[in-house]
Amino acid sequence: MNPFFFGTSEERLLGVHHPPRGRAPRDVGVLLCAPFGQEYMRAHRAFRQLGLLLARRGFHVLRFDWFGTGDSAGDAEEGSLARWVADARAAIEELEDTAGVARVSLVGLRLGALVAALAAEGRDDVADLVLWDPVVEGRLYLEQLRKAQHVHAGEDPGDLTRLAPDAVAGILGFPITGALAAELTAADLTAVGLPALRRVLSVVAEEREEYARCDRALAERGLDVRSECLPAGGSWAEVDNFGSALIPHQIVQAIVAFLDQEPGGAPR
């Protein structure tokens, strides 16, 4: 578990590399793409666990903070979907160079799943894609955040899809700018031009129409989609006074098992 900075000198990103432990290294690396805002805070522990477990299966794993989030450079207000897609691509290349692997599987949680899918567009070095409780429609995600903020603060922040370009809304302790909200409003995972991925795992903690729609859309494109619903307590978009982590162990184990069985995953 080695934290380091990568990226350009002006836009350094914090990465944590989990090198393989106790097993011969695999020829595919795994990049973990984090959620945003309070969901990122609550997911940090689960990502650490996932990274450690995958490293024990012989994978080089990289998790990292998006620009403007965590320890990475920039203010949260400077974050944008386009920038984060570029971050994910930079992280794929960093992992390939650092680990000496030719291909990378992407695991994305919540907004990280949408960004991972966008980053995979047009690439031929992405092996598998894991969509974990994915943000399928940006518009729905903004509505979910609006409701969560309403519950948390007792005040409705209003329709985030209509946020003025220069406005900033505080959502569960993190800013959403009008520019980011506009990008999210237009984003739809089912419309992403995914390349010919080897396999897709859609793993969710509850049944939702948006998840089913996403699975259908990806399958209709001929992708090998495996769907699993593994109910877990708690919600990502939630604030409590103690900053609790959410670790859906069954889902973490399911992701490890899925990647562990990858067809080309034999030790080098």
Binding site: Q38, M41, R45, T69, G70, G173, G243
Partner: peptide, 30 residues
């Protein structure tokens, strides 16, 4: 940890920030 420093050296005092609960080092709400 992450050490964050001014461009020049010569500071005689530093601040150390520690975890709150299990929130990682970025701190509550960063």
């Amino acid at each position: 940890g992450i050490v964050c420093e001014p461009a020049g050296r010569g500071a005689t005092r530093a601040v150390v920030m520690v975890n709150s609960g299990i929130l990682h080092r970025v701190g509550a709400c960063r």
